[in-house]
Design a protein around this nucleic acid. Structure first.
Length: 270
DNA sequence: AAATATACCTGACTGC
DNA sequence: TGCAGTCAGGTATATT
């Protein structure tokens, strides 16, 4: 399941193959993604030169002078670079053929992903109201503390809210809260300023480490070249129900919080 | 306004 | 072996 580290791993993987390439053709085999792909996507994208491959939150941005393709991998999406004339398989929904002959291929079995075109990607409705990048300068403990005052929502769903901070998905939310020693059910408005400083640090730390490890492969995430990430080997709590806490040895607990599996140590996290 | 529920989808897994 | 049922989860949107 792509979270920010998986998307960033993908971005870095495809960047050398895509940057500077002109889009020769676009083939969309299935437009029924999370939102239907616009009818004019092919026309607007074809012929443009991809000057850079960017990322905002978990959206990949293929930037041309005329605008950007905005690709979200959803839960099960992946992109790969394949040689010319590689036959598509059942869930290969979009091909972007480059001047080099390589094809940028989007596969998404569950079709929770999406593909848009925008003249200015950052002004697109899906992007314009997003919170700061967790690895950027605008994100710190003070930001979390200010936004959380008076909020009764549990801290875990709070840090997973896109208008608060982007890119903190279910796995890394549990991990960051463990490292910060904060109970996931604690009300966001009742976490102290100093603990938010610590939490901002652990969010950055866990995301950086996961990017360095090539992402987390839990079920069906693989990088652009089919390579598995290996951050799952470093997970402290996620998916470790009843196994001993790495810090104190107490069994890791699993509860559902806001419809999401949540893992934590009942002794270390308060 | 904030909190919570819903919708989208299919592969992987479970239990019979 | 097969089948029905359950679960997973990102996130915009609808509902409370």
């Amino acid at each position: 399941m792509p979270e920010l580290p998986e998307v960033e791993t993908t971005r870095r993987g495809i960047e050398p193959y895509v940057t500077g390439q002109t889009i020769r053709a676009v083939t969309i085999r299935n437009r029924s993604l999370r939102w239907p792909v616009a009818d004019d996507f092919e026309r607007r994208a074809t012929g443009g030169r991809i000057d850079s491959v960017g990322r905002r939150a978990k959206y990949l941005l293929f930037n041309t002078a005329a605008g950007s393709a905005i690709l979200h991998l959803g839960m099960s999406g992946s992109v790969s670079i394949v040689p010319p004339d590689t036959p598509p398989t059942v869930h290969d929904h979009v091909d972007i053929e480059l001047a080099s002959g390589d094809v940028l291929r989007f596969r998404d079995p569950r079709r929770f992903g999406s593909l848009h075109w925008a003249g200015d990607a950052l002004e697109h409705r899906l992007l314009k109201d997003l919170g700061p990048e967790p690895l950027g300068d605008a994100f710190d403990g003070d930001h979390l503390w200010r936004l959380s005052r008076g909020r009764r929502i549990a801290v875990k769903p709070f840090i997973m809210t896109a208008s608060v901070v982007v890119g903190v998905g279910n796995i890394y939310a549990s991990e960051a809260l463990f490292l910060a020693g904060i109970h996931p059910k604690r009300q966001a408005g009742r976490v102290s300023r100093s603990r938010y400083d610590r939490l901002a640090d652990t969010i950055r730390e866990v995301l950086r480490r996961a990017i360095a490890a090539g992402g987390t492969t839990l079920r069906d995430f693989y990088g652009f070249n089919g390579q598995a990430g290996y951050f799952q080997q470093q997970l402290d709590v996620y998916g470790r129900e009843d196994e001993p806490c790495h810090r104190c040895g107490a069994p890791v607990r699993n509860v559902v919080l806001g419809q999401r599996a949540t893992y934590y140590c009942g002794r270390c996290q308060t």
